[in-house]
Every structure is written in C-alpha cells, then in structure tokens.
Design a protein around this nucleic acid. Sequence first.
DNA 1: GCAATTGCGGTCAGTGGCTGTCCGCATTGC
DNA 2: GCAATGCGGACAGCCACTGACCGCAATTGC
Lengths: 329, 329
Amino acid sequence: MHTVIQTSARLLSLLSLLQMRREWTGSELAERLDVGARTIRRDVDKLRSLGYPVEAAPGVAGGYRLGAGGELPPLLLDDAEAVAVAVGLRTAATGSIAGIEETSVRALAKLEQVLPSRLRRRVRALGDATTSFVSEGPQIDPELLAGIAGACRDAIRVRFAYIAKDHSATQRHTEPAAVVHTGYRWYLVAFDLDRDDWRTFRIDRIRGRLRLGGRGRRQTVPGGDPAAFVKRQIRRSGESGAPAGQILIEAPPEALRRRVPERYATIEAVGDDESLVTTRGPWSPYFLVWMSLLDEPIHVVGPPELVAAARSAAARLNEAAVGADRAEQ
Amino acid sequence: MHTVIQTSARLLSLLSLLQMRREWTGSELAERLDVGARTIRRDVDKLRSLGYPVEAAPGVAGGYRLGAGGELPPLLLDDAEAVAVAVGLRTAATGSIAGIEETSVRALAKLEQVLPSRLRRRVRALGDATTSFVSEGPQIDPELLAGIAGACRDAIRVRFAYIAKDHSATQRHTEPAAVVHTGYRWYLVAFDLDRDDWRTFRIDRIRGRLRLGGRGRRQTVPGGDPAAFVKRQIRRSGESGAPAGQILIEAPPEALRRRVPERYATIEAVGDDESLVTTRGPWSPYFLVWMSLLDEPIHVVGPPELVAAARSAAARLNEAAVGADRAEQ
DNA sequence: GCAATTGCGGTCAGTGGCTGTCCGCATTGC
DNA sequence: GCAATGCGGACAGCCACTGACCGCAATTGC
C-alpha cells in the first residue's frame, strides 16, 4: 500500500510511543509497529534528521528514548490529556497567572479548533464545575474568548450583541483584529462595519453567541499596536467603572509582594513601613476579606462602600462565631 | 534527497500551518512548502487518510482548513504556546479543578520530558511568580510531581529524602508505581527497596531533589488499585492531621454546590434549609474567607480554633474600618 | 448568467527512496 | 566473557512520489 503515508504514520506513531514511555528497545518498537528492527533504526534516524532528539543507549539496559531538544516535537495527547490541557488553558486564560493570558487564549483557540466534540463537551462540563473560587474580575467564558481569538487569527467577521456603557444593547458586525488583556479586563479591537470605524469592545459586555461570517479585510489596528490602541481608548473614554479599593497596610511593600497578586492590585510604599494597596479594577468583597488574612494591621482607605463592606463582613464573622458559642451551650 | 522524510516533514508542516490559521488556499500552501499544487492536494489526501479531517471549500473564497475530527491530531505548538500549556497544566495539577489533577500530572510529565530547557526555565519562572493566591492544601512543586509521575510511568527507581510523621528524616530508595490524588493530598505508592515492602509516601513530605536510578521491576500495586491501596493505608494509620473545619450555612445544599468547590469541602444537608460544610483537610483561613463571602448567614461549628479565627478576622476588619474613620477625621 | 477563483482527480513518465535481509562491530551489564 | 542491545554498510526489488497537463465541478461576486 501507499508506503509514504505508512512511513509518515509510522513516524508519528513512533513519536507517540516515545512520548508515552521513556524507554523502548528496538525490538519492542519493531513489534509494536510491525516492521523490521532495521526499519526502526532507520525511522529513528529520520526522526533525528527531523530535529527530534531520540537518545539511544546500547547494552543490555539500553533502548530508545525521546530527549528534550531544541524544538518541541508535535505533542501526541490521548483524550484525557487533551481535556486536561484544555481545562488548564482555560484557567490560565482567565487569569490566575499574570502574563500568559493572551498566549493561553491563542493556544486554546488552536486546540479548540481541532478538539473532537465529545472532548469539547467534557471540557465544558469540567470548566463549568470549576467553581469560580478566584472570582475576581468580570467573569468571561473562556470558550467565548477562544472563539473571538480564533476569529481574530483567521480574520473572520463576527456579529454579536453588545451592552454599551449606558446599558443599551446593540448588534455589532465587525472585523476582529486583536484580543487584548489589560491585567484586569479583556478587550476586543475590531473594525465596526456599521459605524465604519475601529472600536474596542469589552468582552465581558458581549452577550449571547458569536455569529461567524465571511472573511474580513482589515486586520491591522491603526498604529499597529493593539495594546496601545486599547490604552488610548480607555484613557479617552475615561473608563474607570466602579472606584478602586484602597487599603493601607502596616508593612513595607517588599513584605507584601509575594502575598498580593500583581494581577489584582498594585502596591505603593507610604512612609517607611506602610504600603498602599490599590485594586486594579473595582474592589470586591473578596479583596477585602483576603487582605484581612494578612498578618499585619490594615486600614481601609476608601471608598466609603469598602469601609461599609468591611463593617458588614466583620459583623457577619462575629455572628458566625457567636452562633458557634450558642451552639456549644 | 530523502523523499520520505521530506514528505513526512511536509505533512507535519502542513498540519502545523493548518493549525496556525484557519484558511489556506492550495497555492498559498504550495508556495509555503515549496512544492507543486498537485502535491498539496495529494498531501491533503494523505492527511485525510491518516484520520485528520481537512475540510476544503471550492470557489473564490475557498481553501483548506483543519476541522475537528474523531481523533486529536498531533499538536504543533510554538514556544510561547508550549509555555502556556505547561503553566496551565501546573495550575490544574495543583488543583483548582476537581477531577483532572492526575491526568494533568500525566500530561505535564509527557510535556516536560520533551520541553527544551530554555522553555522549562520560562515555565519555572512563571510558575514561581504565581503568587500562591489559592494556597489551599499543602504546597507541592508541580515539577516534583511531574518528575515522580514520570518515574512511575517509566518504572525508574528513585531515591529521595522523606520526612516521616514524627518529623524524622530518612533516605528512601524506591520503585515507584503510582501517584494518587485524594482530593486533598498527593501520595506516591512505591516499593521501598530497603524495607522490602510497599509503602505510601505523602509527596508534600518529600524534600530536596529526586535522584533517578535504574529500571525497576515492580510496578503493580498489591491489589491492583493504587487509589484503594492509599485509602487503606490512610485508614490504617489513622492519618487525620489537623481537624477539619465545619461551618453551618442557612441555605440548602443545592444553593451551595456551585459556590463551594468539591475539592475543598463536602456539603451535607441539615434539616430543611441548612447545610453543614466540612473541609476535606484541616481548615485554613481561606476556608473562612469564602464562607464569609456567601450571602447567607453562617455559623462556625468548630473546631474552637476556627471560631477564634473568625473572631479575630472580625476584629481585624472592624479595626480596619475604624482606622478608616479615624483617617477621615 | 457570466467570469474568476479554487478544489478535484485522472493519467503518464521518470526517479529514487523504502524495505527486508544479512553481516560484522561497539557498548553495556551481569 | 556472554548476552543483549544499538549501529550502520551493502544489496536487490519494488513501487510510491513528484511534477506536468488536462478537463470538470462548485462557489462567489458582479
């Protein structure tokens, strides 16, 4: 039969086997792949000449194994592993680790494009069960994010429903160009076909499903740098949303760096031994209670609502403790 | 030159291109791969016969694209994407999502085996910057976890330093068999060569680096099921550690399921409208935090330390609010 | 409806890579 | 030193791959 596709398929299988287990002897591989041992040696050579470092050891305890090379070989994942990767990327995209959100979304878009639907269902099920423990920031569906990122990559027009700042709902027809993550929010930079101009959209304000259209033409943001474009737009529109929360902590910034995720808040020194922690977005109850877990004394600076929230959280916790005492008696 | 390796390499490149962008025309691909358009068509056929569903559309807006098939094609990631995947798997492994920890570790072991060292460094750097925001449960280095999982998979002997329950340090020489995650802790089931018997090790009590040895012989846990083995061992040794925390919430369990990660706590109904939430491991301040973020009234049941923690958190919050008032004056 | 673009697949000839077999050699662990 | 293992040269047969050329079908845009 078609030898090359056999050969190619065999090379892929070989790579897969080498990724599954560390050590294989030539004869094991020959048996698994149903070819002669000589062919295995030749295949190993082929893999090497393709840049994948197959290490070999002679002797009775010898065998073949795949080493870490200069280039990443194609990853051959089984179903469960693929699901794990997708779920991992979803959480990474929604941001527990600073600095790789956008790359995670890109990788997720790539994976979702080829993910069999049965696996996609499993990913979705697991993702929904995730319990947004770190429910900081606006909640965004990673699938929506991946879909938008894919549309940007492929220059595919998208229609979606959008809730503007004044809560008015509109239908948008756009040619998406880039997805930008500011450390707090996700934005889509796209050419709005109805308004005939470039716009930025807050992705958490996109509602419903994306409707994909035909191929778009514009894919380069004015100025070339999508992140800069978003920054300008934000500054111009003075988008501030709810006020940030500020808390003063009786500890130098260095002592806090490790305990305050950069993603959520900034730290400034105040005097010698105090730090001002400011949330990047609007404050949330979580910020409050979490700050209360630090060892050092804290003082809420503002806004007044945060002070009120602190008082009510204190009351709730007190009640919880009192309830315990009552239960004991 | 070697046509088959050229052909195989071209198929891989083709797959890579199709994963990068959604639509390519045949002539674009032909130019990129430096072959004739006819060959591209044949290569597409080859990919199809390998099981990867390449969709094609005729017409002026047509082209080739990779669809979602029954089988996952080899993932061809660039450097940044590989790092994102590795970081995502690390966080998934250390457990923000219930149910895929062990698979994530397996996938991570697979990836780390072939990850070029420059990328491994970047992953480590990002991982270290993660800020253990969700620092529930014992902290475990995902790299250690991946290393152990790899040793299990490959049946490679490992030596490591181990801190026993009575804090005494010992050197262990083992043939690792399986890594088990209980929903709270990670365990290694291995054959202890010095003690000549099977043992379970808490991975958070392993110190320092793993030293890998030669090939082991035993890889099947007595009874066949590693998880069951670990469960038996835990029951026998009566390992309980610090006491679990319990909080009574004035809400039916159904209302809580979504807001309380199964991984950290169990929920039982008490009466008609109340639920008892019990941490799986010892309670931590974080448990207190998110319980206090629920809307319904809560009551700490025990242990007394948790009551005390609630009281002191309440006091701190009160002080924080008072401090704010003072600052305003 | 027409034209342009694009994918599809048949055919042909030439070339050269792939496979299995057989061989001797080097290395490692027991 | 023996057994197991990887390495690679040589040889013969075979047939898959490539590029070129062709006409056909489907889709989009005007």
